[in-house]
């Protein structure tokens, strides 16, 4: 079986700034992977590089065997929609929501493939089972929701398609511990089948024992690996 993601020698950054240095990473089908690191060490940039949103990048990124990591020097986001359509689901930091759309329209907008659009009703039901509080907010503009509800919308939107790889950027950031916990629970409850999930997180305690592997990230490089359950130094 091909790896869901295989990164070879990836460097990326913005303008003169080089954030990621020659990074290699393999994610296998069915795997839940945690990337842990401090602010400013490249977790978000790594996710952006996979989605083609960085200022420049070079190196190979294979998503399910197709190359999505050509050398880019200009136009961040120019090919993002094509890359995303190859099987990525992004749940970005800061939510990136459409403030004027209702929750329902949001979930619809996440169903961008033809199959997902056709049975979007079933998929919306599935997301609502995961995030019960959204059920009575379906017609509310997202701009009026609280931080936790917005996070649920943003993650729920990512769950509307059958992605090969779910990229989750700091799901607990800025949330009350209890709500952060429940968002994480929803992510862990998802049945991955042969897709994979990549969670960038600062709070190791939230990941402990719940993901298959935890990798540390420091100064744009991956450092040290711990399997689940072991303490992480």
């Amino acid at each position: 079986m091909t790896d869901v993601l295989r990164i070879d020698g990836l460097s990326a950054g913005y303008g003169p700034l080089r954030v990621i240095h020659d990074l290699d990473l393999v994610i296998k089908p069915g795997e839940r992977l945690g990337i842990v690191g401090l602010n400013g060490h490249g977790k978000t940039t790594l996710i952006y590089a996979i989605a083609g949103l960085t200022g420049w990048q070079r190196g190979s990124i294979l998503l399910n065997g197709t190359q999505i990591g050509r050398t880019r020097s200009q136009g961040p986001g120019r090919y993002t929609h094509q890359i995303v359509r190859k099987g990525l689901a992004l749940m970005p930091q800061g939510d990136e929501i459409f403030t004027g759309l209702t929750v329902e329209e949001h979930l619809d907008s996440g169903a961008f493939t033809r199959e997902a659009w056709r049975d979007r009703k079933i998929r919306k039901e599935r997301v609502l089972d995961l995030f019960e509080p959204l059920r009575k907010l379906m017609r509310t503009p997202v701009g009026r929701l609280s931080g936790g509800e917005r996070r649920m919308v943003s993650i729920g939107r990512g769950l509307m398609t059958d992605a090969k790889l779910y990229l989750v950027d700091e799901p607990s950031l800025g949330l009350a511990p209890k709500i952060g916990q429940s968002v994480m629970e929803a992510l862990f409850a998802l049945d991955l089948k042969d897709s994979a999930m990549f969670i960038a997180e600062q709070n190791v305690a939230l990941l402990e024992g719940r993901v298959d592997r935890v990798i540390g990230m420091h100064a744009g490089k991956l450092k040290g690996e711990a399997s689940a359950g072991l303490g992480f130094n």
Partner: peptide, 22 residues
Amino acid sequence: RRGLEIRAMMMNPHAASIVGIG
């Protein structure tokens, strides 16, 4: 559906590309 895409892009073009809107 196209209208939804256009409205999404009106509100947040960056997020629009993330949900596969060209």
